[in-house]
Design a binder for these strands. Structure first.
Lengths: 204, 204
DNA sequence: TTCTAAAATTGAGTCAATTCTGTTTTTGTG
DNA sequence: CACAAAAACAGAATTGACTCAATTTTAGAA
């Protein structure tokens, strides 16, 4: 039997996340009171804390969905990359960046990033690190693929290069979400300019 | 007249910072209560909030002192860099990293970084961005110097390269402070390995 | 069907950052 | 030396995340 209890649990999880996501967007992370989320989800405050360790973890659940979607979209690029190193990188990182504001506002990103450095050992902190690692792996996989195809030099340290590219993009993204007026197109252009140096060094 | 008021003000600032710095180190950022800081500094809670917008700004004042010291130490390297690109970068970034835990514990860094992304428009958030920019400028200055001396190719986009190097180092440093067991030596080695790709691309 | 242990829910209470309002101190002027 | 305005101070009150002891609900054994 799929269990009444299990069904209720899943349902409450969903209600909490939906209520929180709506409120985070409307009122911002700080502005969304746990009390309000509880009321909206029709559970008590205590129940929320039975499901999530703290407010950050609720946001964490939302962020995870977003990033997993991005990782999924990235798989296509790795499997079938554009025919030169510069475009391949730009396409993959472009997917990451373009998707980023689909479900999450800049303010939500700021909070999520802040929490992940503030509480690296909380459930969300750990999950966030895992997501970052997955993104690095995907970039590395792309580089490996380009090396296989013969578009990138084989004697390049692909592992270090993957980190370098990810770290730079991530830092640029952090600065991007810190400024409300920053535009996605400019972010992509700046990253392309930075990566050009790398592309010149590794393209065959 | 240097003003009684002005003198008292400076004195109170100093007392608050000293009390806070001691408590942050002893009890951690979260563990240090404003009430305790106020008692230690012999001022009231209200007065602390008259001097700093929030708890994070107090930490911010401490972080700023640290980073300014690092910037100062960096000037020497820029003026007189080691005779090859790899060592020059390693020396400058090495100074940043080695100094980093002088006054600030990893926990304090985590909090400071978290606050700077959480509240980019608070006094500290703005100051922190300014410090980052200053570090980027110093790395750019080093690259420009290396180009002048003829150790680095002139046709490299020094501006983008400086950002790239800083962003990568900063992200690595964030990961470093997130893991208490991470060691400085390993951090430097990892960054050196990443920069090797760049060094190969830009050294004459 | 009845009963009991385990699991989940509840919301009033705690704790600490921040705000707010009344009081005190400093300054500059007559 | 008053004195009034401005600046700074004090600490009680507010606010909101999180805890915990009591209560309710579910599962499944007899």
């Amino acid at each position: 039997m799929s269990g009444l209890r299990a069904r209720q649990k899943a349902d409450r999880h969903r209600r909490i996340i939906e209520a929180a996501a709506a409120l985070f967007r409307e009122a911002g992370y700080e502005g969304a009171k746990i009390e309000t989320i509880a009321a909206q989800a029709e559970v008590s405050i205590g129940t929320i804390y039975n499901y999530y360790e703290n407010k950050g973890d609720i946001l964490g659940a939302i962020v995870s969905m977003e990033v997993n979607e991005v990782l999924n979209a990235g798989r296509g690029v790795v499997a079938n990359p554009p025919a030169n190193v510069g475009d391949a990188l730009d396409t993959l990182l472009g997917i990451y960046i373009e998707h980023s504001l689909h479900y999450l506002s800049k303010e939500m990103w700021r909070q999520a990033m802040a929490i992940s450095t503030q509480l690296p050992d909380s459930p969300f902190g750990q999950a966030y690190s895992g997501l970052d690692r997955a993104l690095i792996e995907q970039i590395r996989a792309l580089i490996a693929r380009l090396q296989e195809i013969g578009l990138a030099r084989r004697d390049i340290d692909g592992s270090a290069l993957g980190e370098l590219i990810f770290n730079n993009m991530n830092m640029m993204f952090i600065e991007f979400v810190k400024r409300d007026e920053a535009r996605i197109a400019e972010l992509r252009a700046a990253i392309r300019r930075q990566n050009r140096i790398l592309v010149a060094a590794i393209a065959v």
